[in-house]
Write a protein that binds this DNA or RNA. Structure first.
Lengths: 149, 149
DNA sequence: AATATCCAATTGTAAAATGCAACTGGTTTT
DNA sequence: AAAACCAGTTGCATTTTACAATTGGATATT
């Protein structure tokens, strides 16, 4: 007889210890970076807001990914003091540091994919900007998300 | 009566035209970047070699992803002149330009994930290196994969 | 005070993707 | 001639995702 604790996002049992793989294990899917993008650039901090993305994530998938991202230390949850029912999602510094990945993906898409340039001017600025801009945005995010810097 | 052409990787019908999403639609999964990593850094050019990754991709998934990556213009296939049965997979310039995404993911993982540093010295160099190193590796890859530069 | 709306999820079910092992027809090596 | 190797393919079980409806409690409106 054996008691098995099944934890969907059990950490510590990795496919490999290659840096690319370890990043893919966290945000190598179709939704995680969409959620992080919306928290970063659209100022979305509540479940309902995150549900409204253009890509139309389903609520059960959103629930699942938020739990995973929290367990991986990318985001934190806290209850909204102004509204007992609302929960505020914030980025940690581990989450904020995903920004360069998003920038690199943006650069690639602007070069090769049919981006709606008009509707994505902010992303275009980030893609074209230098490391100073990345640091400035990180600084801003640390303020908004109460991360020590 | 209607003739429906079903194409698993039909292009032109996107979830959105956001740059992050358009990149995720191509390589937002657990395997695509593993394959690209192995072609880029381990010099793997044949199916059997790609099958040998630490992460142990299944042969049907590898077949599927190679077809998708070819359709997306990330890689090309050609038969090996020295061996009628072998097929050589090469990166296109669209594929080589994924390098900065891989670099950014590597940087993040070295900072936050339990990377095997000893076994990933090349990745560490890339993560720590500047844009000159990225351009040098791109140049090298263009030579190896016969991409005009 | 009663009703409607909003909140972060949860539930049920169908469809799709993935994982795994065995196998294929042909090619090259021994 | 036999063995090993090549890029896949096939069948099947498991897991993940998509989609729609619903939940119980909190807040806003009338």
């Amino acid at each position: 007889m054996q008691l098995v604790l099944k934890n969907k996002y059990f950490m510590g049992n990795h496919r490999s210890y290659c840096p690319i793989n370890l990043a893919l294990e966290v945000f190598g899917d179709k939704w995680s970076l969409i959620i992080i993008r919306d928290i970063m650039f659209s100022g979305k901090r509540h479940f309902r807001e995150l549900l409204q993305s253009d890509e139309k994530i389903a609520s059960n998938i959103l629930t699942d990914r938020l739990a995973m991202l929290e367990q991986e230390g990318i985001i934190t949850k806290e209850s909204d003091p102004d509204h007992k029912q609302k929960i505020i999602y914030s980025l940690t510094s581990k989450g904020i540091d995903i920004l360069p990945v998003i920038k690199a993906m943006g650069e690639w898409s602007f070069k090769y994919q049919p981006v709606d340039v008009e509707a994505n001017q902010h992303a275009k600025m980030l893609a074209d900007g230098g490391n100073e801009l990345v640091e400035e945005i990180k600084h801003q995010l640390r303020k908004e998300h109460n991360v020590a810097s």
